[in-house]
Amino acid sequence: MFFRPNMHVEEFEAAALPHLEDLYRTARLLAHDPSEAEDLVQEVYLEAWKSYHRFEPGTNCRAWLFKIMFHRLHHFRRRWIKAERIQPFESQQQDNIMADPEVPEEIRDGDILQALERVPIEFREIVMLADVEEFAYKEIAATLRIPLGTVMSRLSRGRKLLRQQLAAVARSYGIGQEQPRQRQGESA
C-alpha cells in the first residue's frame, strides 16, 4: 500500500535509455571533453533512477531527463563548462561591426561544431535545446528554470553569435574574406 508498485530497473531503462543519444550529444557539446560528457550522462541516469518514484508516467521523460542534466550541469558549471565568455562591450561591438554576416555556402560539420564551441555557454545551451533537440520555448524555460522572454532573447542572440563565429571560422580558412571590401566598394 505504501510502496510504489513495479519499481523495476527494466521499466526505468525502457523509458529513459532511448534518450541516451540526445543527452550525450548535448553533454558532449557543453562539456570539456568526451570523458566529462560520459560522467555527466552517467550521473544523470543515476539521479533519474533514484528519483524515478517522482516521475509521473505518461509525462515527457526526455524533458525530465534534460531538466536533471541541466540542473547538474549548472550545479557543477565551474568544474564542467568551458567558461569562454565574450565581454559584453566586446560582443556589442562585434554585433555592430559584424551584423548578419553571410552564411558560407558550404558548411562542414567540424566547422559549425567548432563555431558552436566558441559561443558562450548560456547562449550555446539554448541554441542546442531549440535547434538540435527541438524543444519548445516553454520546455526550455522549464528545463533551464528561466523566464520565457529570456529564452527568446538568448536564442536570438545565440544564433547570431553562432553565425558570427561560423563566419570567423570560414575567414580563418580564407573563405569570405573579400566580402567586406566588396561591400565597402559598393557603398563607395
Binding site: 541516451l20 550522462v41 552517467q42 560539420d109 559549425i112 558552436l116 535547434d131
Partner: peptide, 24 residues
C-alpha cells in the same frame, strides 16, 4: 541553412557503446 547545418552536424556526437553498458 545555419540551423539545418547544426542539426546535421550534432548527431555525429554518438555515445560510445561502453557508456550504455556502464549505465546499465
Amino acid at each position: 541553412k545555419l540551423r539545418d547545418a547544426l542539426r546535421k552536424a550534432a548527431p555525429s556526437q554518438l555515445p560510445p557503446e561502453r557508456l550504455r553498458q556502464t549505465i546499465h
